[in-house]
């Protein structure tokens, strides 16, 4: 559970920081690094990454939309066949979640590929240096 939270926080904070200066895919290196460095089962790793990406993008979009009183999301919604602002926020959050989730998962499984664990792939183990 501790590593789940650690991964979640790492992706959230790293994701936030990466967005100053890195294009939209900033979550990818952050997720890969978090997955590589912090041990989790694949499901947990994915979930932690997904949740962090989902919340980061979702809340950020929500905050901007709220301050804007939905002026822009109403117009963008029309560009996409009349989607509402909540749907746009949900799409944004899902994109952030999926990218971050798969990035953490890839990082984690990539680590396993490079450094095969001794007893079965997902036995509990310490984090290696």
């Amino acid at each position: 559970m501790k590593n789940f939270i650690l991964t979640f926080v790492a992706v959230l904070a790293g994701g936030l920081l990466s967005h100053w200066g890195v294009p939209w895919w900033g979550l990818v290196p952050v997720g890969l690094a978090a997955g590589w460095l912090i041990r989790n089962t694949p499901a947990r790793g994915f979930a932690a990454g997904f949740l962090a990406g989902f919340l980061l993008w979702g809340i950020w979009a929500f905050a901007l939309d709220h301050a804007n009183e939905g002026i822009l999301s109403a117009r963008i919604g029309m560009l996409f066949q009349g989607l509402g602002n909540w749907t746009l926020i949900l799409i944004t959050a899902l994109l952030g979640g999926l990218v971050a989730g798969f990035a953490v998962l890839s990082g984690s499984l990539g680590y396993d590929l490079a450094f095969p664990p001794k007893k079965g792939p997902y036995a509990r183990r310490r984090r290696r240096r």
């Binding site: 939209w24 901007l64 944004t92 994109l95 952030g96």
Partner: peptide, 20 residues
């Protein structure tokens, strides 16, 4: 491209000016 466009840090959300 949807990633760039939907990213709340660089995409269209950034053009949502505070209404107040």
């Amino acid at each position: 491209a949807l990633g760039r466009f939907f990213s709340p840090f660089s995409g269209f959300w950034q053009n949502a000016e505070s209404a107040n």
